[in-house]
Computed example of a mutant assay.
Amino acid sequence: MHPLGPTIARISAVLVASVVVGACDRASTTPGVSAHEKHSTLKTIAQRIMYCDDGTRANVALSDDGLKIAVTWLPRGRPEILRANSDGDQFRNDQSRAVVEGGTLAFLRGGNVRVCHRTPGDH
């Protein structure tokens, strides 16, 4: 098993639980940040701007079935859809994986890990 395997599994379980809990209250969207709307057919129930440890920001939307997230790296990234096979699984596509723990999302892409947190003041 890859050295990150157990860590990713733990983060995945917490990520899904927090996304489900966080989805219960619709997040307010930031005016002018609607990157998912035009480029995706994802029906969202929650959308948040997340701040990453490396200084980047991501617009993250959760689908109504809880098994897909759309991620757009701000300010000019293209939407990227990641899917999970079932509750508790990692979200993934051909290039990326994402796991959630609490209000934190960890993105793994090409050997790089990017850790992002909810917008300050977001509940």
Rank of each mutant, 00 (worst) to 15 (best):
M1D: 12
H2W: 05
H2M: 03
H2D: 13
H2E: 11
L4E: 08
G5C: 08
T7I: 08
R10F: 04
S12K: 09
S12W: 08
S12Y: 09
A13D: 06
V14G: 15
V14Q: 14
L15E: 15
V16K: 14
S18N: 12
S18H: 12
V20M: 14
V21M: 09
V21Y: 08
V21C: 06
C24F: 14
D25F: 09
D25I: 03
A27V: 07
A27E: 15
S28A: 15
T29S: 10
T30M: 11
T30S: 12
P31N: 01
V33M: 05
S34T: 05
S34H: 10
S34G: 10
H36C: 10
E37A: 14
E37S: 13
K38I: 05
S40C: 13
S40D: 05
T41F: 11
L42I: 02
I45R: 13
A46E: 13
A46F: 15
Q47R: 07
I49M: 12
Y51S: 12
C52M: 02
D53R: 06
D53P: 06
D54H: 07
D54N: 12
G55Y: 06
G55A: 05
G55I: 04
G55K: 06
T56I: 05
T56D: 10
T56V: 07
R57S: 13
N59P: 10
N59K: 06
L62N: 02
L62E: 02
S63M: 04
D64C: 14
D64F: 15
D65Q: 05
G66P: 09
L67V: 06
L67K: 07
L67D: 02
I69W: 00
I69G: 00
A70W: 00
A70N: 02
A70L: 04
V71M: 04
T72K: 00
W73S: 06
L74H: 07
G77F: 01
G77H: 03
P79A: 01
P79N: 03
P79D: 00
E80L: 14
I81P: 04
I81R: 00
L82H: 04
L82W: 03
L82M: 13
L82V: 03
R83C: 13
R83D: 07
S86R: 14
S86W: 11
D87E: 15
D87A: 15
D89Q: 10
Q90W: 11
F91Y: 09
R92V: 04
R92I: 01
N93I: 01
D94P: 03
D94S: 13
Q95S: 15
S96F: 09
S96A: 15
A98Y: 03
A98M: 12
V99R: 08
V99A: 13
V100W: 12
E101N: 14
L105N: 04
F107W: 01
F107L: 03
L108W: 09
L108H: 10
L108N: 10
R109C: 06
R109D: 08
V113G: 02
V113N: 03
V113L: 07
R114S: 09
R114H: 09
V115N: 01
V115H: 01
H117A: 03
H117I: 01
R118D: 10
T119D: 13
P120E: 09
G121I: 01
G121V: 02
D122I: 00
D122M: 04
